[in-house]
């Protein structure tokens, strides 16, 4: 019980201190999980993180489930995950509640119009950052363009693209045409 409480609190701390998720989370995880509690080694942490990246879902959540499971079995996995999302739920609910009551103030509207411009640039940068790892030959370029254009011009569920592209990846690999 003590261990589960420790897991919850440790991951709640990780949740509070992670701004933006992804790579920003690694140093905080190292401090809490490796240095402070010794629940995993640095190598194990990197392994979990790598698998967390290539399984569906939010990376921070996947990593928390992994470490929680390894430390205290299935209940540990569940508790660590609830810990990492707990601060988000509290903080966002508070902010969303406040913002809703100010949404009609002209200055708030202007501020958010400015922020939206920034969001464009941030998402654009995220695409460029992922591009190098993802688009490695003409086949992956074709998949990228196909998904992009079809989702811009038609209202297709992203689920379909995910399933089709995973299948395409397997077929292209089996045909031995990757990188050509």
């Amino acid at each position: 019980m003590k261990l589960l409480l420790d897991l919850f609190l440790a991951f709640a701390r990780v949740g509070v201190m992670t701004f933006g998720g992804g790579y920003a989370m690694i140093p905080i995880l190292e401090r809490e999980i490796v240095d402070r509690h010794g629940w995993a080694t640095e190598e194990e942490l990197m392994d979990y993180y790598a698998v967390g990246q290539c399984t569906p879902g939010v990376i921070a959540v996947n990593t928390a489930t992994f470490i929680g499971y390894k430390t205290a079995g299935t209940p540990g996995g569940v508790v660590a995950t609830l810990g990492v999302v707990f601060p988000s739920v509290v903080i966002i609910t508070l902010i969303a509640g406040i913002l809703t009551s100010f949404a009609d103030v002209p200055q708030v509207k202007s501020a958010f119009a400015g922020i939206r411009v920034c969001v464009c640039v941030l998402i654009f940068n995220a695409v460029l950052k992922l591009w190098k790892k993802a688009v490695v030959d003409k086949w992956t370029l074709a998949l990228f363009l196909g998904v992009f254009l079809l989702s811009v011009f038609f209202s297709v569920s992203p689920v379909i693209f995910v399933v089709v592209c995973a299948a395409a990846g397997i077929v292209l690999t089996r045909m031995g045409v990757r990188g050509k």
Partner: peptide, 28 residues
């Protein structure tokens, strides 16, 4: 799994790029 991800990675950024287009349309 590795082969599946070869196809999933470009899919993922294709979807994010399309979302980016939607924000650009509203914001700019």
């Amino acid at each position: 799994v590795e082969a599946g991800f070869y196809g999933l990675r470009p899919c993922s950024i294709g979807l994010i790029a399309a979302a980016c287009y939607l924000v650009i349309k509203i914001a700019l």
